[in-house]
Design a protein around this nucleic acid. Structure first.
Lengths: 347, 347
DNA sequence: GTTAGCACTCTTTAATTTCGAGTGCTAACA
DNA sequence: TGTTAGCACTCGAAATTAAAGAGTGCTAAC
């Protein structure tokens, strides 16, 4: 029986070669190929012996008796972990593509997803940043016309909410001013969690006949608490999966695409990513490791980017297990630092 | 040579039977089938003769020599036109499914797309209503903190825009008041089209040292003019297309799905629909008739719904040419009137 | 005008064959 | 002891062939 320890340097080199070749071709790779295209100068027979060992150790798999070997999830994992340790690279062209249309954040993120997709040939997603929007920074009611007023609420992180409120009975300018005073003095700087029933009752009492307005404003505030609702996810290049036969059969394609359409499932990915963040903020899920069940035949690479004030968002790349991890990780790091940079510059 | 006139009653019945059967099965239908499952009491041979005629007239097509016939686009068209003339039906269950979560419009529309998709087994889209947002109803600048103010702009149809503006130098409350006065007196009720360079220059002049703020506010206004940007499109059931073999091959699937992802292409559909609206507001595009090239192998059914104040949105169903037009048209009308009703009730 | 009948066409499906890539194992070699 | 050549064997993929069926068009009879 072989043990973990027996992963000699040579075996490692062979494994590496197998994976690299497989990433390229998507076909099982045989002993002869390795023997020829490696500088190890070993015959195919020797390679075969080593491959038998590697299979026993669980790093590669033989799809059927007379086929070459393909990497197992464990093999990919080893490979990726090795890559992750590598030092950073310099960043280059992607930058200018991004800057073209960097006027609005929303646009920017859409653009980022698109660039990343066309850059990698995989499916991508980008979530809008969130978190930390838990303090009320500013509230203002304004009269739009005789029948309605608008409530604008600015939260920490400059998240803006507004709500149109229909008046049941006219409201004088004077009273509006009073309400504004009341709301601001009471709520400004207050964490959302602290708004409870007692506070609401007190506010309504003080508002007198206009308590209905207060109720509406607080409703708007309540909306904000369900953070999910405010997180948008932009996707791009979904159809790239058709480029990889192993994901193009009806069932897989359907699974993956519906996960992309009902962004619900992707939010799961986002929260996971934000939770587990390590030092680099980059994570790789291979096969079953993924939090999204619909993508169990894929590999998913995610990264976190930060806005200045603690708001965080997520970037994701979804592709076949045999994705070009090297390229993907590089692109990821690049985009990540670009977004970081861009947002810090702007704030 | 046969002419349009020779479409006898019998031929019509046979055509009808062919189409109905084909809608069900998706397989070419032969003379024998029609002979057996129709109350015409004709032998398959007779049917064959008639079918030959129908083919010459262009209503049906023979995919290959020894196959049955399938409807041509022209055949579908005739069929649909006949259906369109039918009188309305009563509306029923769909309603309650909708009402569950009808709190926010956005939610409601997403829900509508979903219900429609699960109801028909086709892919669906719903656009948020737009149009008419061309008058400025109200503008308000408010101080958020020492460094930034927020501009809120309400347009006709209660479209709300906001923009955070960073101040280069402090702004007194007094001056803020002045700016508000200036903006409101000048811009209130003004159609967006009328804001031109001359007006902007004049405003900036009057704003004095704070002209930069005015510029920013007008930028926000300018954003609104590109209406597209504000129109959201929700899709659902994209993967339903995999239920229809004729749309599941890689190329078709890719085309259709990418049209659904890059909503850009769907906006084209929306604008077309809104433009050509006839009395019912329902349109059917068969095959090449569609405005979206990526869907040339599909049929697309669209409908318009209205909000009280002239805002209009679009619903769309995308499926195979052999879609169940009867059911789809019925569902469409139902949803359409429900949305109409719902929004009118709410406003 | 309608129908039965038959030869013919063409697709679909299954069965069969062929081909080749790749393996495992053994025996010889350095 | 590790490496290599060689060979029989396996198994999937692709090509070939065969058989089955559905449906047609046409002719001749009713």
């Amino acid at each position: 029986m072989l043990t973990e320890h027996e992963l000699t340097d040579r075996k490692l080199k062979i494994l590496h070669a197998i994976i690299k070749t497989y990433l390229d071709t998507g076909e099982p790779v045989g002993s002869r190929t390795i023997s020829k295209y490696t500088d190890l100068n070993l015959s195919s027979a020797t390679i075969r012996n080593e491959m038998a060992d590697l299979e026993e150790l669980g790093y590669i798999i033989q799809p059927h008796t007379s086929a070459g070997r393909i990497p197992s999830d464990k093999g990919y994992r080893l490979y990726v972990d090795m890559l992750m340790e590598e030092k950073e690279q310099e960043l280059t062209e992607m930058q200018e593509q991004m800057l073209q249309k960097a006027d609005k954040m929303e646009q920017l993120l859409k653009q980022a997803a698109k660039v990343l997709a066309s850059n990698t040939n995989y499916a991508t997603m980008v979530s809008t940043p969130m978190g930390n929007a838990n303090k009320i920074k500013f509230i203002q009611l304004s009269m739009v016309d005789e029948e309605q007023i608008i409530a604008v609420i600015v939260l920490g992180g400059n998240v803006i909410k507004n709500k149109i409120i229909n008046l049941e009975e006219p409201l004088s300018n004077e009273n509006l001013l009073k309400l504004n005073m009341l709301l601001n003095t009471t709520l400004n700087g207050m964490p959302i969690e602290e708004i409870n029933l007692g506070l609401i009752a007190r506010l309504k009492e003080q508002a007198g006949i206009h308590s209905e307005v207060i109720g509406n404003v607080l409703d708007a505030v309540a909306d904000v608490i369900q953070i999910d609702e405010d997180m948008q996810i932009y996707t791009s290049g979904t159809t790239n999966i058709f480029k990889y036969p192993e994901l193009s059969d009806k069932q897989s394609a359907q699974d993956i695409i519906s996960a992309f359409e009902e962004k619900q499932q992707l939010t799961e990915l986002v929260t996971q990513t934000l939770a587990q963040e390590d030092n680099t903020g980059i994570q790789v899920y291979i096969g079953d490791e993924t939090p999204v069940q619909n993508m169990k035949d894929c590999s998913v690479v995610t990264a976190t980017y930060e806005l200045g004030d603690g708001m965080k968002g997520t970037i994701g790349i979804i592709g076949p297990k045999r994705m070009d991890y090297e390229h993907v990780l590089k692109s990821m790091k690049r985009l990540q630092s670009e977004l970081d940079q861009m947002f810090h510059k702007k704030e």
